Simulated scan of single mutants.
Amino acid sequence: MSELLPVAGDDGSVRASHAERDAIVERLNEAAAEGRLDFGELEERVERALSARTHGELAALTADLPARPGADPAKPLTLKGGMHGAKREGLWTVPARIVAHGGMGGVVLDFTAAECRLPEVAVEAEGGMGGVVLVVPEGWGVNTDGMEGGVKDKTATTPRLPGTPLIRVSGKPGMAGVVVRHPKRRELRRSKRRAELTQG
């Protein structure tokens, strides 16, 4: 089945895992970026993916999309800044592990409108020359004890609210460093507009 690892004897009734749901959501976001899905289709399919119970329900969501060869839902989300930078923002599902390489252009991980069902998320950040920025909603917890210096945590004075995720950051800051901050007003407005479009 598209985007799922084969399971012997699986007729579609095998129960789906969180990792498999996350893999399908990631593929749907990629398909939207490629122009294969419009915003409405993306929102509808992501909602169905997050509530899917079986492999069959998940497979139906990507049946009309080209499969990625060798896709493995157990792999971490890896972003590489390269020359032009990389960003993950908007509606996306947060996996248990994220690897961010700043490179020349930098990496931005914006959790403002992200779906996170995990109590803890590990972010391995390599700042490089472009740096890595984590945009974390107020109330989420952040632990940067694993960073080898060079991290600016602007959320440190904000207490973590019960039931919210803990983002555990580790790695090397590089030349540009790693910044953890709350969303700015324009980012909150953009997130609110997306939510209104989803509800409408």
Score class of each variant (00 low, 15 high):
51 S>V: 15
54 T>Y: 08
61 L>C: 12
140 W>R: 04
167 I>Y: 10
90 G>P: 03
122 A>F: 08
170 S>D: 08
4 L>K: 08
181 R>Y: 10
2 S>A: 14
6 P>T: 07
66 P>I: 01
78 T>Y: 04
54 T>G: 05
163 G>W: 08
88 R>P: 01
184 K>Q: 09
190 R>S: 10
138 E>P: 00
69 P>D: 06
49 A>V: 14
143 N>G: 08
19 A>K: 06
188 L>E: 09
123 V>H: 10
169 V>R: 02
6 P>A: 05
191 S>Q: 13
45 R>G: 06
154 K>D: 11
127 G>R: 03
113 A>H: 12
177 G>F: 00
91 L>N: 02
90 G>L: 02
188 L>N: 02
167 I>P: 02
83 M>G: 00
186 R>H: 13
83 M>H: 09
199 Q>T: 15
157 T>V: 06
1 M>V: 11
26 E>K: 11
35 G>N: 12
31 A>Y: 07
27 R>W: 04
49 A>F: 10
6 P>M: 06
117 R>E: 15
48 R>P: 11
131 G>Q: 00
153 D>G: 02
163 G>D: 03
132 V>K: 02
68 R>S: 07
26 E>D: 15
187 E>A: 08
5 L>A: 15
170 S>Y: 00
187 E>L: 11
114 A>S: 15
17 S>H: 13
128 G>A: 05
82 G>P: 09
129 M>F: 05
150 G>L: 03
153 D>M: 04
193 R>N: 06
73 P>S: 15
90 G>Q: 05
161 L>Y: 03
46 V>Q: 12
56 G>R: 11
112 T>E: 13
104 M>C: 00
180 V>G: 03
55 H>N: 13
139 G>Y: 10
61 L>S: 09
162 P>A: 01
85 G>T: 01
162 P>Y: 01
152 K>Q: 15
76 P>F: 00
57 E>N: 07
143 N>S: 12
130 G>R: 00
92 W>L: 06
43 E>N: 14
196 E>V: 15
39 F>M: 11
70 G>R: 12
164 T>Y: 05
130 G>W: 00
38 D>I: 08
176 A>R: 02
39 F>P: 01
87 K>C: 01
32 A>N: 14
113 A>L: 14
31 A>D: 06
143 N>E: 15
81 G>A: 02
163 G>K: 00
88 R>A: 13
124 E>W: 09
165 P>I: 11
63 A>N: 12
135 V>K: 02
70 G>P: 02
85 G>E: 01
111 F>Y: 14
6 P>K: 05
144 T>L: 06
62 T>Y: 05
89 E>V: 01
191 S>L: 03
57 E>P: 00
49 A>L: 08
59 A>F: 07
21 R>G: 13
132 V>G: 07
110 D>I: 11
102 G>D: 00
33 A>P: 00
45 R>A: 09
38 D>G: 11
109 L>T: 12
168 R>I: 08
94 V>D: 01
153 D>V: 09
68 R>H: 04
33 A>L: 14
200 G>Y: 14
81 G>W: 00
16 A>T: 15
170 S>E: 15
10 D>E: 12
183 P>V: 14
198 T>Y: 07
98 I>P: 07
141 G>L: 10
165 P>C: 13
77 L>C: 04
133 V>R: 12
75 K>C: 04
175 M>C: 01
186 R>A: 15
155 T>Q: 07
111 F>S: 11
21 R>T: 14
146 G>I: 03
51 S>Q: 14
6 P>I: 07
5 L>F: 05
